[in-house]
Amino acid sequence: MEHQHVPGRQDKRQDSRTPILEWIAAAIGLLLTLAMLGFISWQAWRSTGEELPAIKVQVQRIVPAADGWVVEIAALNLSAATGAAVQIEGELKQGERVVATSQVTLDYVPGNSEQRGGLFFREDPRAHVLEVRALGYAKP
């Protein structure tokens, strides 16, 4: 591998035929570009632009934390619209009585995506009925 410029040799070789590498690179590039256009067009086709976020909150796991328990939650956005500053509340209930509440705000829950967060409780959530729900969101 000598590092010096040999003008004639390189130009001649590349003039004659399209090198295989160029074919591969162009094909991959074309494929990716078309895939991008495809995905986004598909989205444009499906969404009306009028949807509102539809956020479903699920409890993932309950783990003992430093000063009580932490409940890991997953906020699943079922619509194509993104919600910002999504507030999520968890309530521990004993029959009709609310024992404790905890809140968390997720910065963004993008459309058709999932974001995770956690709620801290002093009491053991497994000893009560735990209800989690989204309270509201802001338009990003």
Binding site: M36, F39, I40, W42, Q43, A80, T82, P110, G111, N112, S113, E114, Q115, R116
Partner: peptide
């Protein structure tokens, strides 16, 4: 992490 395919495509287009 956790994003849907459509969002991934949009974000890639932006950073692209």
């Amino acid at each position: 992490d956790g994003l849907g395919v459509g969002q991934i495509a949009m974000m890639t287009a932006v950073l692209g």
